[in-house]
Nucleic acid binder design. Structure first.
Lengths: 211, 211
DNA sequence: GCAATGTCTAACAAGTTTGTTAAACAAAAT
DNA sequence: ATTTTGTTTAACAAACTTGTTAGACATTGC
């Protein structure tokens, strides 16, 4: 058998499935639609994946895993001082979202509709998150003790950053409907990024240490 | 004909539709499911609303209109000073979301899946928002000129508040899966509210004016 | 009372959607 | 070569979904 052709068929289906699932979500996606886009008969994706649910889980788990890396990057890279590193985290996370703008809505949406998918997420990235979280909290506490930053829990800080960043992209469809120009849309996003950094910076940096 | 019974049938359908649509979204909701929950044959909701789309729009427009009031409240009530009023806005908006925790995800989700629904939103609350926005920007500018608060666009301020508040509830399903105790969940929400107020306060208040 | 109108049900219909299966076709293994 | 295994298609089927319709039943106005 021709391995390349086989792989490419399965991959074609996965790629098509990813596109359609990401754009429309689980319920609105029809297996025939995926097959059409992949250029195969819909029996093919039952041959490879048996059920619609199976294809979906493959995609979903891939996407969930994508969330892990930017978060792990948060605690490594101890070269920079914490405040500047947090700035970099916002930058990295924001750019990651820019490269995957439909990811947040997709994940949130599916977690809301299928609460058991939250378990999938916890299984996949739970321990890693837990570790990173503890390390970050310890670091924060040190900086607080030194009087450099304001007290804050690592959870609140992470939620602040993620909330602000993610929302910028979740609300993108609204922005797009108001301004159609691509450059202008990008300018708005850049402005948001700047504002988010400013907001987080003011939240953590002690006022006495600011210019 | 018995008006009360008629109203109650139609209302039963609308109530059931609201529950199911809010919980599952447009695509995942089946008309038979709505009929079942309302305790009527599914022909009934075609009799009253003709199509699934029609029932949905009724629900959707109602929900969109609910968003308007808390925002309008932002500019009225000139008794308080701006900074304290912003604090109240966060409080009001947060409590509104607490009373309607599934609303944000529902609206965002449907706007993402059906971009034309954004038009519906703009038609319903567009002008009101525009007016409130201008008034707020003028007020901010005054306070900035007096050296009381840091420069910020009204859009950024609103987006910061809405992003942080909404995210707290959009991510609620995750919190619920981690902590099952209701009181504990509430404590987490209260902590988030406090943190959001703190974050926004530090963002806008000039450092010189702070204790 | 009875005609007109509104409400409701059961049955049906057309289309879609997920999934199966038999059989054709291709490749690999012996 | 031929058996075995893997891939692909076309046709089918069962279930579900949205929507219709004919007629029963109730209510109202006259």
């Amino acid at each position: 058998m021709d391995k390349k052709k086989t792989q490419s068929k399965k991959e074609l289906i996965l790629k098509a499935a990813e596109e359609v699932f990401m754009a429309n979500g689980y319920e609105a996606t029809k297996t025939t639609q995926i097959a059409e886009r992949a250029g195969v008969t819909h029996a093919m994706l039952h041959y490879y994946f048996q059920t619609k649910e199976n294809i979906f889980r493959k995609i979903y788990e891939d996407k969930i895993n994508m969330l892990k890396d930017p978060i792990v990057a948060l605690v490594e890279n101890k070269e920079m001082e914490l405040p500047q590193r947090i700035d970099t985290i916002i930058e990295t996370h924001f750019e990651f979202l820019k490269a995957n703008p439909t990811l947040p809505h997709f994940v949130i949406s599916e977690m809301n509709n299928n609460p058991h998918l939250i378990e999938t997420m916890k299984e996949n990235i739970g321990e890693v998150m837990g570790e990173s979280y503890k390390k970050l909290q310890n670091e924060i506490d040190e900086y607080v003790a030194q009087g450099i930053i304001n007290p804050i829990t690592a959870l609140d800080l992470l939620l602040d950053i993620v909330s602000l960043n993610v929302s910028a992209f979740v609300m993108l469809p609204i922005i797009k409907s108001v301004v159609s120009d691509k450059d202008e849309q990008n300018a708005i996003l850049e402005q948001r990024k700047k504002e988010i950094k400013e907001t987080i910076n003011r939240r953590i940096i002690k006022t006495e240490n600011k210019a």
